[in-house]
Nucleic acid binder design. Structure first.
Lengths: 268, 268
DNA sequence: GTTGGACTCTCCCACCGTGGGAGAGTCCAC
DNA sequence: GTGGACTCTCCCACGGTGGGAGAGTCCAAC
């Protein structure tokens, strides 16, 4: 095999990369030309390097960061596969996030920004039997389900009577470490192991109804917070969700969720 | 409603935006505070501005560019809905692109980078009856289908005998304006209106078989080009695909496609 | 009144990957 | 030996956000 070297332009054409890209990859040590002329600085690539260059182009096409590509190229097949799997998971997560975004955007594009009727009212005091969990914002959906799965057996075993709906309580801000609670309203069950109790004070609240998948809840909260602030009020934790029609009873398009945020005169 | 103004920090907390973001939005004219103290430069926001700020936060959450958000906020409801629909389409396209990427990444993560056996061989001369089209790289899939839909009736009406597979011809480089052709091998049909003919010269080729959805074809081409360049050969247009098992005959996981790239000694 | 601490201001730089363009130098075929 | 195509390095731009410096401001507590 003759090893006539290629200057950067022809080499770029072979691997479907731009000259700028190749220079950048050289500079960052991802793909160095086999020879660099000391005098002129000209980069010379060997035809064998197209293999790596094509691989880089392929992985870039899948949106892997250059740093990760560098890792993957340098790694043994085993850890390389591991890196690729990690990236696959990252991409899968991005897609599912984008799909939620898409659904919200659909709704916005069709219904416009309004579409939520916010009511200012009063809530009675409630006593909830709850289980708690700590999670990040991204995990909320899974964690709530998990909590429901923990809660119902406890209630059943203890023979505690309760009526729907299920409730969930959230902090006001979506932080990295947020404490949530899932429960039901009941006067019974004090002292049951695994159960905790939450006394929700009565008082003024803002509320609205969300019909549709949970991925679109953000829209409802947006309307809710806007209405609260416009009235010069301040939201107070915990935010309450009541699952009037849940995933067990209806397809995701028909879920009904009541959103309630306690409010307070801002002067207070 | 008392209009006690808020400094940037408390206002940021209300709308779940960072102080940096608010300053940036002010600077670019997206959301200006109602009052800026001439002496100190302090920004003062009115509680009513939380509505716009929340909307901005919401649209950013859906990944709309700030410039588009500015447009949307300024526009009438009608054109706003239009803008949102356009963004929805953009996002939908990104998702489908990402899904293709994900599938390729799956395959890479599982099978590793190898997985394609590239054969160097010789192809006989072939005479194809084709229809042509011009498209961008993103449209290829749809255009090829459209071409098939145009080709088959013409063949049928003219009573031209042919045998599977269907073939497609592509240029070497994926450019913005690429000419493609779809056809079948047949000795008949000269002069049929709507049909053109393509004489594929025989000679040395590199080829491989791709089994799976078309969204993963890039992987096969990567292996193919790498093999060609490693042997010091040069690919020649047109690239040929033969659809041995097409979408009409099998689910997408089981599609079989033969990829053939004519090659030439690089010295020539 | 003064002090201290929390807040705010403006500026610059960083990330990521790519492209554009300036200005200078190099290669090679005619 | 000359022209034209190529290459070099260097700086700046995009998008949106964050970090940090260094200076100034607000307000409550003493």
């Amino acid at each position: 095999m003759r090893d006539e070297l290629l200057t950067i332009g022809p080499f770029a054409r072979l691997c479907r990369l731009s000259v700028k890209q190749l220079r950048h990859y050289d500079e960052m040590g991802l793909l160095a030309p086999v020879r660099v002329d000391a005098g002129s600085g000209y980069r010379y690539y060997a035809p064998e390097q197209t293999r790596d260059a094509l691989t880089i182009a392929l992985l870039r096409e899948m949106d892997l960061p250059l740093a990760v590509i560098a890792q993957a190229l340098a790694a043994e097949p085993e850890s390389r596969a591991q890196i690729l799997r990690a990236e696959r998971d990252r991409l899968a997560e991005r897609i599912s996030g984008d799909q939620a975004r898409l659904e919200m955007l659909e709704r916005l594009a069709e219904g416009g920004l309004p579409g939520y009727e916010v009511t200012m009212g009063r809530e009675p005091e409630r006593r909830l039997a709850v289980v708690r969990a700590v999670c990040t914002p991204a995990e909320i959906g899974a964690k709530v389900e998990e909590c429901v799965g923990r809660l119902l057996p406890v209630l059943g075993r203890a023979g505690i009577a309760w009526e729907p709906p299920l409730w969930a309580l959230y902090p006001l801000d979506l932080e990295e470490r947020m404490e949530i609670a899932v429960g039901v309203q009941t006067p019974h069950g004090a002292g049951t192991p695994g159960l905790r109790f939450e006394a929700l004070p009565g008082g003024p609240v803002a509320e609205t109804m969300h019909i549709g998948p949970y991925s679109q809840l953000l829209l409802a909260y947006n309307a809710l917070f806007a209405a609260i602030h416009e009235r010069g009020l301040r939201p107070r934790a915990p935010v309450r969700e009541a699952y009037l029609v849940g995933p067990a009873e209806a397809p995701r398009e028909e879920l009904m969720t009541r959103l309630i945020i306690p409010v307070q005169e801002s002067m207070a």
